[in-house]
Design a protein around this nucleic acid. Structure first.
Lengths: 184, 184
DNA sequence: TGTACCATGTAATGGGTTACATGATTCA
DNA sequence: TGAATCATGTAACCCATTACATGGTACA
């Protein structure tokens, strides 16, 4: 049964482990909280939920809103908790490659002239500057570092990672620009 | 016809734009030079080459090694060069999300105890420390910064990016470890 | 002569996006 | 009453990996 488990299924189990939710609410979580490091469309979430249900890792109750509309409020089962805990507590010891279309373009940019390459670098810098500002705005929500073993604390750690990454990318792009500038 | 183009096809065009190659040699390039930011298995490369050929973006000559073995030595066509140039000279103005299974685990690590979370962070740190050392070794091959408009120069830029990324990740992980250490 | 590597393909399957499809609820 | 959002699903398709399949070449 372990071979049915994808990373997305673990992400769903993790969310349900915190709080019972409908598929729609899970979708919202992927669009907001998890968006920085994972995401999924509803067309992928609903089939995965069905699969998890078939394997008894989640279950659901029917809730009714209004007069007619039925919602499935999913919760994690004991078996699901066990699967989730096994996944989170161990790491596969491998370095995953990050596909990066920008680096691919930069790698082939020897056939561009100075202006074209510059414009490429500047546009990419703009994208990451904006992302950096966005993350820094989020950081303002924390007026101090939350206590460990709190969901706010892990939010904080992940946010720090995002900020550091964008800072690093901006630095790198600026260095590339300066290296391109100063040489014939 | 533009809708047949995947990023992988552009990567192949880019490589063939530099030098005529067989499918096997392309595979080697993905395993070595491009591995840091793109990759592809031979089972994906050969069908893509066929597709590019069908669309007249590449062509090939048969080469014979030994007595029998026939190799297809692919080269880029004028039409292929045009497609490639169009792709490389413009950027889609969007921030792509990077899926990151480690961050996902960290995000749910509030249910782990201190030791378990520490061990997770330490293992990840080890992976990225090794990657960093590996990149730094590669940097030694450059005894000075290559001239711009040289393929060595873009190699150098991309390598700098890899080093910066791994440095940043290591720093972040150390910060996480220290934040976990110093609080109850 | 056997093993590592060169060389080229196809098939099955998994993971993910886009598009198709339907209907209820809330609020202006 | 109409628009935004809640809510749930399926179908077609694309990209990528793993496995299946075959045979030649170089070299110890």
């Amino acid at each position: 049964m372990n071979d049915i488990m994808s990373t997305l299924k673990y992400a769903i189990l993790g969310l349900l482990n915190r709080k019972s939710m409908t598929g729609y609410e899970l979708k919202k979580e992927f669009e907001t909280t998890l968006f920085e490091f994972w995401n999924a469309k509803h067309s992928q979430i609903y089939p995965e939920l069905k699969d998890l249900y078939d394997n008894k890792l989640v279950n659901f109750n029917i809730e009714v809103s209004g007069n007619v509309l039925q919602k499935k409020l999913y919760y994690i089962t004991e078996s699901g908790k066990k699967y989730f805990y096994d996944w989170i507590s161990k790491l596969d010891n491998k370095h995953v490659i990050q596909k990066d279309e920008f680096k691919l373009k930069l790698y082939f940019s020897d056939l561009l002239n100075k202006d074209e390459r510059n414009s490429l670098l500047l546009k990419e810098l703009e994208i990451h500057s904006k992302a950096l500002m966005h993350f820094k705005t989020n950081l303002l929500k924390f007026d101090n570092i939350p206590p460990s073993n709190d969901t706010d604390f892990v939010d904080y750690l992940v946010l720090l990672g995002g900020i550091k990454r964008e800072e690093m990318v901006c630095e790198w792009l600026k260095e590339c620009l300066s290296l391109c500038q100063n040489r014939k």
